[in-house]
Simulated scan of single mutants.
Amino acid sequence: MASSYGENASKSALRSSYLELCRNFPEGLAAGVDRAVVRMLGMVREYREAGLVLAYVPFHEEMDTRPVIERALAQGKRVALPYLQPRTSRLSFFEVASADGVELASRGMRVPPVGEQPLEAGEMVGSVCLVPGLVFDGEGYRVGYGAGYYDEFLAFYPGEKIGLVRSMQVSSNPLPHDEHDVPVDVLVTEGSVWRCRRL
Rank of each mutant, 00 (worst) to 15 (best):
T189H: 05
M168L: 15
P113N: 08
G76F: 02
A74E: 13
V182S: 04
E160H: 09
Y145A: 11
E103P: 10
G122K: 06
P176D: 10
V125G: 02
G126S: 06
S98C: 10
V165I: 14
D151R: 04
S10N: 07
E116K: 13
M109K: 01
R107N: 12
E120G: 14
F156I: 11
R195I: 13
R110T: 06
A50P: 02
S10E: 10
G163M: 05
A30C: 13
A155I: 00
L81A: 05
S172P: 09
P176Y: 09
V37L: 10
R198Y: 03
V96F: 03
P176W: 09
H177W: 04
P174H: 09
G108I: 11
R195D: 05
V111N: 09
V131F: 00
E190V: 07
G126C: 07
G42L: 02
L54D: 07
V111R: 15
G6T: 12
L21Q: 12
V128G: 04
A105S: 15
V135R: 05
V57D: 01
R87P: 00
E123G: 07
V111C: 10
V128M: 02
S106N: 14
A36C: 11
D34T: 11
H60T: 10
G159T: 09
M43H: 14
Y150H: 07
D185E: 09
P176L: 12
Q117C: 11
V53K: 04
E152M: 12
Y145H: 14
L52S: 00
A99L: 08
R87I: 00
G108Q: 05
R90A: 09
R35V: 13
S172K: 10
V53G: 01
G163Q: 04
S10C: 06
A80P: 04
G191T: 15
L73I: 01
R110A: 06
V111P: 00
A2C: 08
V33Y: 10
E120K: 13
L84K: 03
Q75W: 05
A121L: 15
P26C: 13
P112F: 06
L130S: 02
L73T: 01
R71C: 03
V44M: 07
S89M: 11
F136I: 00
F156D: 12
L119R: 07
L29C: 12
V44Q: 00
V114A: 14
